[in-house]
């Protein structure tokens, strides 16, 4: 059962833009991305949007729908009232290229700043052996589809452009946590998490977890455990003393 729905879509580029009104046909079972495609096909052929899989797995069609950061392909039109105006805008945290397409290069730069997996020097590729129980914790983080909704939502950079240099954002702090929990990784991640990737900026308000389309518990399972590991290293005198007495390194545990 189709109906005519009201849409507002942000049109413009870095030089400026605003919300444009559209009235568009909406059919049963459609998602927001279908409607954007219909607008492209029928009313605004030059409207730019990034998309690929239409199945919630490529992370391309991230946008803000009625103000909430979401994947357009995973947002059903049936979740809105028929007389409700649906507003679609680009991700606010990143520079806009055109319409709904933003430059997410910030995230690629932050990804490169994370030191890669560092196995023991005497272990060659092909010789890695580890138990499932030791890797399953960080496997949750591998579900990330890099949609950057968490990066976009985190207020530390969303509302404070000046923090972008010093804060890697939840997605890459989660990557640091993943490597720190890896049974074969030998790099020191705790100091770098705090000092290079800005873990201290995180005030655990859990917006990254709220918007994650893969339902990764970023805050509870990655950021807070990483904060606790940083406390071990930098702020807990008893742990420091214990490690000194027992001459233990972090990779021993």
């Amino acid at each position: 059962m189709g109906y005519k729905g009201k849409f507002k879509v942000w049109r413009g580029d870095a030089s400026g833009g605003d919300l444009k009104d559209f009235e568009v046909e909406i059919n049963e079972g459609e998602v927001v991305l279908d409607i954007i495609h219909r607008l492209q096909a029928t009313q605004a052929p030059d409207m730019a949007c990034r998309w690929n899989c239409k199945a919630g797995k490529c992370g391309s069609c991230s946008a803000e729908i009625n103000g909430k950061p979401r994947l357009m392909c995973m947002t059903r039109m049936s979740t809105f009232e028929q007389d409700e105006t649906v507003t679609v805008t680009p991700l606010r945290t990143f520079p806009v290229i055109k319409d709904l397409v933003t430059d997410v290069g910030f995230n690629y730069a932050k990804a490169r700043e994370v030191k890669s997996f560092t196995p023991p020097k005497d272990l060659l590729p092909g010789e890695y052996r580890m138990q499932q129980i030791d890797v399953e914790r960080s496997q949750e983080f591998r579900k990330c589809i890099e949609c950057y909704l968490c990066q976009n939502t985190c207020h530390a950079v969303r509302d404070h452009e000046e923090n972008k240099d010093n804060f890697s954002g939840p997605r890459y702090l989660m990557r640091v946590a993943e490597l720190d929990m890896h049974p074969l990784d030998t790099a020191d991640r705790k100091n770098s998490a705090q000092e290079e990737h800005g873990l201290g900026f995180c005030n655990i308000t859990k917006c990254c977890t709220e918007v994650c389309p893969e339902h990764i518990r970023i805050t509870d399972n990655a950021l807070i455990p990483m904060k606790e590991r940083v406390v071990d290293r930098k702020y807990d005198p008893l742990v420091w003393l214990g490690n000194k007495i027992r001459r233990r390194t972090s990779s021993d545990a």
């Binding site: 413009g12 833009g17 103000g67 909430k68 606010r92 520079p95």
Partner: peptide, 15 residues
């Protein structure tokens, strides 16, 4: 905020 961002006046569009 960077002027390169989409210029949207409202603090939030959440409904």
């Amino acid at each position: 905020l960077s002027p390169a961002r989409a210029q949207i006046e409202q603090k939030t569009l959440r409904t």
